[in-house]
Design a protein around this nucleic acid. Sequence first.
DNA 1: GAGCAACGGTACCGATCGGTAACAGTCGCG
DNA 2: CGCGACTGTTACCGATCGGTACCGTTGCTC
Lengths: 207, 207
Amino acid sequence: MTIAGAWATSGKIETISPRARILAAAADLFHRQGIRAVGVEAIAEAAKTNKMTLYRHFLSKDELVAAYLRSIADQATASWDRLAADRPGDPLAQIRSWLRDKAEALTTSGERGCPFANAAVEFPDKGHPARRVIEDYKTAQRAHLARLATAAKLSEPDVLADELSLLLEGVHVTAQSLGTQGLGERLIRMGDAMIKVHGGVGSEARN
Amino acid sequence: MTIAGAWATSGKIETISPRARILAAAADLFHRQGIRAVGVEAIAEAAKTNKMTLYRHFLSKDELVAAYLRSIADQATASWDRLAADRPGDPLAQIRSWLRDKAEALTTSGERGCPFANAAVEFPDKGHPARRVIEDYKTAQRAHLARLATAAKLSEPDVLADELSLLLEGVHVTAQSLGTQGLGERLIRMGDAMIKVHGGVGSEARN
DNA sequence: GAGCAACGGTACCGATCGGTAACAGTCGCG
DNA sequence: CGCGACTGTTACCGATCGGTACCGTTGCTC
């Protein structure tokens, strides 16, 4: 069987670059099974390629891990942009929308929490290349939240950003040990309450 | 050099059972470096014994992991008891004391978060022996918090228990990515605020 | 159609993983 | 004393880890 045959069985016509396939396969396996639990061989196989090609695109497994987290960070940035486009000039609505997106993602992501926090657990060494990506992402998310809170003229925007971040992290890690039952609703209720305390009354009957 | 010589260098006189030494060494290494990152050989060496003795006390590494978590759960239970003995008949004070203990432990535990949550990240498989210990612990902690909240006549004790649990988890995971700066104070302030919302006015100038 | 960069396949490397067999002490206890 | 339970040491097992050398094939470009 030739290449055409292989793609026929997979049902995909357009050619996806090996690098993208590897990154996608790594994202899936890392997230579901944990990073250290997944070998590079398994990743290459899931990406319908082999180890050699993987190492032609990534210097090492550690660098692959960093690239995996970077790609998720990019998606998160795009998600913020989409939120801003959907509710232009309404930072408060963007925060509340973000909360609801996170609540919805809880159940769909298979109770495996935040990829960055999980990676931080598996790689405590500050010298690991993934570390920088993790810290940058967490810092950026908190900063974006604070920026929106400031734009929404909420009180103590930095504190609110911290509070919402802590809440989300807590929800993520709890989902991994006790499941997601009722967690989405709790996230929204607590988040809305925090926003309210900081002066964001908000349109309650929205979304 | 004989056994006496070895103990002389370690500075310890009383004999600690190999099992206890292994458990202590495993706790230290697992917590600091992550579970999957630590091999059984390293644990045996840190416990001043060898792999054979380790496997005479634990059926497998997986069981050792479960035993490690169980021993921490026992310490937590003892900690609750101590809290109850310190503030008998005052459940609200016990909750607030617990909060402060957790805040203090943040900085002393080396920014490595909650052992149970970390283990859940590394072992997503529901069939792993550690899983049961993790879920039992998290459930027990939440239940104890709810029991104290009920005894303190706070409103919606279950909700408060959830909120405090989420907050603590969030603080733990945040400590691992962004450090513990100001996290203890934030934990106490947010926790106290949550308690207050549920009717626990509390003696503000305490501890 | 020639040249060339990228990809796939296989076989391999040393190291380390979790786990075990066999044997030599060493201890307390009757 | 002698026995049995526990501990320590060494050497080893098959499997898998991350990573690489080598070669054949493919497809795009000029």
